[in-house]
């Protein structure tokens, strides 16, 4: 080996070590990065299929009103017509498939309404808001108001 190259031998070895490092990195990348990564974007394409096979937890209100016709009639055209059944009653896909399998969640009528209707300055003025200090005697809201048709006459 000539003198010039001899004094650079350590650098040649370091460069070789780096090259090995780069190859190792590429091997690790090939092994560890899941198949299908980057097909549609910077994520694993298979994740879409994984999500699709998961059973839906929500049935959707069209499924609910197939059986619950009284609630449907009360609710239709009312101010809560835009609120999904499962927004208050919880995810009910299992119940829709087999009505005997699980019962709908019955929310606490003393607190559930405040989820949306508690007074808050950030809400639009027109939105009905309740300040519990002025309009709440500790009883259930559905004692006076019908949750499925709140804009119709209060219950007496």
């Amino acid at each position: 080996m000539n003198r010039f190259l001899k004094d650079k031998e350590h650098l040649v070895r370091m460069a070789a070590l780096f090259a090995v490092g780069v190859v190792l990195f590429l091997i690790l990348k090939a092994v560890l990065v899941p198949k299908g990564f980057g097909v549609y974007g910077h994520y694993r394409a298979g994740a879409l299929a994984d999500n699709r096979v998961r059973a839906p937890r929500f049935a959707g209100r069209s499924a609910c009103i197939e059986c619950h016709t009284d609630e449907r009639d009360a609710w239709k055209g009312g101010k809560h017509a835009g609120v999904g059944c499962e927004a208050c009653h919880g995810a009910l896909a299992k119940h829709a498939e087999d009505p005997s399998a699980s019962n709908a969640f019955k929310p606490d009528p003393k607190t559930i309404c405040f989820t949306c209707h508690l007074t808050n300055a950030a809400k639009p003025r027109k939105f009905p808001q309740i300040d519990p200090k002025n309009h709440f005697d500790g009883g259930a809201c559905n004692g006076c108001h019908s949750p499925h048709a709140p804009d119709k006459e209060p219950k007496k």
Partner: peptide, 16 residues
């Protein structure tokens, strides 16, 4: 750590 290279000649250190 030295990658088996024992050379610390003036020229090699100058290059380093």
């Amino acid at each position: 750590l030295t990658l088996g290279v024992d050379n610390i000649s003036e020229e090699s250190l100058r290059i380093d």
